[in-house]
Every structure is written in C-alpha cells, then in structure tokens.
Amino acid sequence: MLNVERMHVKVGSFELKEVNLNLNSGEYFVILGRSGCGKTVLLETIAGRYPICEGSVLMNGSDVTKVSPEERNIGFVYQNYLLFPHMNVEENIGIPLKIRGFHKKEIYLKTKELMTILSIEHLTGKYPDKLSGGEKQRVALARALIFLPKILLLDEPTSSLDYITKKQIQHTLHEIQKKFNLTVVHVTHDIEEALLFADRIGILANHSIAKVFGNSEIENVSRADLSNLIEKEIA
C-alpha cells in the first residue's frame, strides 16, 4: 500500500536518511520516537510537504515522489488540529468535498453522516474557538476522512488531550480504522498508546527507522518486555 524506499529528506539543518517503510493495506503502523527525532517531518514528507533528496515514495505501486500533496489522497491530522478558524465545523469538514466540486446537498449529507459516526453532530454551526480539545480532534479526524483517503497520517493525535478524552479518541481511532479499513501511520512518543493500536511498531532514531517490531513480537512478547525493548531502541 505504502512503500518508502531509501528516502532521504532535508529540512533546514535537520535530515532523515535511508528511511524504509513498507505498509500493507489496512495496517495500523505506529512510529515511536523521542521528541525532535523527525516523526512529524517523516509524515509530512510522505504527505508531500517536503521534496525528497533521494529515494522514492510509492502508493499502491505507483511512484508519488514528485506528486503534489493534493494529488496524493492522504488524510493528515496534526497534534494541534489546525482547524480553519474562519469556518464552522461543517464547513471545516466539508471543505475537501467542496474543493472536489461536490454538490452542496451531497456535502451536507456526507458531513452529517461523518459527524454522526464521530459523535459530533451537536457541534453544528460552532466555530473552532468554541470547541474543546477532544471535539477539535474529532472534527480534524472527520475532515481528514471525508474524502476517503487511501492513507491516514496521524501526528501525535492524542498528546494534547486529557486522560479521559485521550481514551475516548483512542477508541474512536480504533473504530474508524476498522470501519473504513484505513491504512494508518500514527506517530507518537507514548509506548502504551503504540501497543494499544499497532499492528507493527517502527522506531525512529538516529535519523532513520532503526527497528520495526512485527505483529508476532507485539502479540507474543509480554507488554512489559516489549516496552523495555522499545525503550532501549528509542534511547
């Protein structure tokens, strides 16, 4: 589904080297790493924000290395949501469809449907500055899902939420991924969260994916042992 091959990207003085990632369709891949190790840069590069110096990014076998972000069909959710402050909740969610030329009625129906799935139908007409962190995150998720992306990239989606909201959003993410059969790349520094979701876990350290823990390790090794192993890799 998503293949990143020997990717080398430079952003200012920061760089990621020889990054290799192979994701299967419907897989939930979590990337763990320390703060500042380049997790966000990796996601943004996959989504097309930064041009890569070497290597390639393939989606469903086709090379998208030089394809512009709008043509990659990738959903992106940032840690700080980045909802458009001048649009209300429906407008925020509906904007990808509006861009694609959908009819107003169709946008309305699809927006309503997704708002119901994400339990945010009561937020109709509200502007982002009136929403709580959890509500903003659900709206950001809806906006990223409405155009049915092939891949969903999540940049620490729960890190700025309180414990209860975090658990609710984690549950929602899990449900959504199953419902839409999404291929997800989720970056976080929270090992517990990674173990909760991941089909596989990649460790980003020393400017590259240093190790990938496969499905068998996640399922067969005890949580405590796996946590220790991951901590060692991150360190």
């Binding site: 709008e70 458009f84 861009i99 990223a144």
Partner: peptide, 9 residues
C-alpha cells in the same frame, strides 16, 4: 499544507 493535503491546489 493541511488544505493542500485535503485536495486544494
């Protein structure tokens, strides 16, 4: 960039 990722040129 978020706008670009959701389909805006």
């Amino acid at each position: 960039f978020v706008a670009r990722s959701m389909g805006c040129n």
